[in-house]
Amino acid sequence: MNSKDFIIHSLRENIKEHFPRPELKISHIVYHDKLKQFIEISAAVGGRAEILGEGETIDNAIRRIFPDASRIACNLPEVTCATYNPDHIETPTELNGTDLVICRGIFGVCENASVYFEQEYLQRSIYFISESLLMLLPKDQLVDTMHDAYQRVPNEHPGEFRGFMSGPSKTADIEQALVMGAHGPRQVTVLLI
């Protein structure tokens, strides 16, 4: 008997009672001012969210928020201040040392300031390896909770990798002192456009 059969057999032998599938109808919290909630909670998780200024271009906003970024990675046509397109690079090692990456978020979640994204770059590591990350997120794409969020996450998707990101990489492993920038970006800003 191979190990899969062994495990399945053992499960069938041992499980005596079959519990029904629960109906998951949770009447969940609703935020009336979604933008305000999302911006507040972004700060609370150590990140930042702001609305693109009146008459401001995305390039202007990038320059304003990250004045010191010199190596900027982006493959989006609407961003012209990028210094290189990471899709033209073969290995994560060459991406190391990037100051800022700009990527697209699909929707945001008000209860926890997380943003759902699907891998749109060739190199998965660009989402984690840069010092700072800017997410472009349409401001009408905010949902209340993870229930609404996972309603919108498709079962089938063409990409390699996807997930949620909420604020910068962090750790409190030394004496519970909170430190930003454990392995991923030290600074994460969501630009609501």
Partner: peptide, 22 residues
């Protein structure tokens, strides 16, 4: 969805972990 709402709040008092990677 249910577990992502419970996990980090229970673990460290955060609304969610920074990364929920699929």
């Amino acid at each position: 969805a249910i577990f992502t709402r419970l996990l980090a709040r229970s673990a460290t008092g955060q609304p969610i972990t920074t990364y929920t990677s699929h």
